[in-house]
């Protein structure tokens, strides 16, 4: 069973959202209950239930969030303190959203006991094939992974690929953040996704897509192997096309998109190298989402593990 996040709010006290992020307990306290509810949609706690292998003592971190605070210059600003220390101050709610996402990711990653590497990537799974989609912003990776999630793939992340030293892929399934072009395309291609689309009240131009719930792996051995590394690139006016690329070329993308490279050093390099040794690498030019999904399904069919009956 997965637990529902605890959201408490009243006129007297700040709204509180408690999340379990692998081995970490993260508590967001906000003076704006509406913002907390939105945060709840953005980072659904149910997807981050502690996994069996995270036996480390639970670390608890409290973030206090102040929305629309008026400073001495009479400017509206938003603030975040972490365990009482000011860690964010900005006028942009979108930047605070991004910052809070990163805070949760950091806490979640620190809660993992196994060595791991983080890469800026979307991620999904189908038929036992772990798929990593490393790419820069505006490459269409969130739109592509949303299309995959709405086409029967298991959604893992639109933001970060968590890779272990045994080439396993771990989920970080926050709500999918779609820019205007992205959510427009998704709604056009998958009209029924409208009921899963969420926009923050008084919010920015982004929308968030709730991917279908799934059961996360219960231990490391049951986590999915990374078998496909696909570099997506949005090309307007072109048919979707996939072509194999050399693994050394994919390493270039990994190195550019790594999020904890400096901290891990050689260990992180070896994780990335081992992932690439074990996976096949492709470039996917994406435009029409149905075509792109069909191409990824073809790749999965080529690389899915043989069942024992089929193997026998």
């Amino acid at each position: 069973m997965v637990a529902e996040p605890e959201v408490l709010a009243s006129a007297e006290k700040p709204a509180i959202l408690s999340l379990n992020a692998y081995g970490a307990e993260v508590r967001f306290e906000c003076d704006d209950p509406e913002f907390t509810r939105w945060l709840h949609f953005l980072v659904p706690a149910a997807r981050f239930e502690p996994l069996a292998w995270t036996n480390a003592p639970v670390r608890s971190t409290v973030f206090q969030i102040s929305v629309d605070r008026v400073n001495k210059k009479r400017e509206r600003e938003h603030r975040v303190t972490r365990n009482g220390e000011l860690v964010f101050e900005n006028h942009s709610l979108s930047r605070m959203q991004w910052f809070l996402e990163r805070c949760l990711l950091r806490e979640a990653a620190l809660g993992l006991e196994t060595p791991y590497s983080l890469v800026h990537a979307a991620a999904a799974e189908k038929d036992g094939v772990g798929i990593l989609l490393p790419a820069s912003s505006k490459s269409g990776k969130s739109t592509l992974v949303a299309a995959l999630a709405l086409s029967g793939f298991t959604y893992y992340s639109d933001e970060v690929g968590i890779m272990t030293e045994s080439q396993k892929l771990l989920p970080y399934p926050k709500a999918i953040t779609l820019k205007p072009g992205g959510w427009d395309t998704i709604l056009r291609t998958f009209p029924s996704s409208r009921e899963r689309m969420y926009k923050r009240p008084n919010g920015n131009t982004f929308r968030h897509l709730m991917a279908p719930i799934f059961q996360p792996p219960t231990d490391l051995s049951s986590a999915v192997d990374i078998k496909l590394v696909i570099l997506p690139k949005y090309k307007e006016g072109r048919s979707a096309k996939v072509k194999p690329i050399e693994k050394a070329q994919a390493m270039r993308q990994f190195a550019r998109r790594s999020m904890n490279w400096k901290r891990l050093g050689p260990e992180g390099f070896m994780i990335l190298s081992n992932v690439l040794q074990a996976a096949e690498c492709y470039r996917l030019y994406t435009n029409d989402l149905h075509e792109s999904v069909a191409l990824v399904k073809d790749l999965v069919a080529q690389h899915k593990p043989q069942t024992s009956a089929a193997a026998g």
Binding site: E246, A248, Q249, W261, P266, M270
Partner: peptide, 19 residues
């Protein structure tokens, strides 16, 4: 380390990869 397509080498003091 050798990957398909060439050698990739991690420069340990500089945190850089040479491809």
């Amino acid at each position: 380390t050798t990957l398909e397509g060439g050698v990739v080498a991690f420069d340990i003091p500089k945190d850089q990869v040479f491809i």
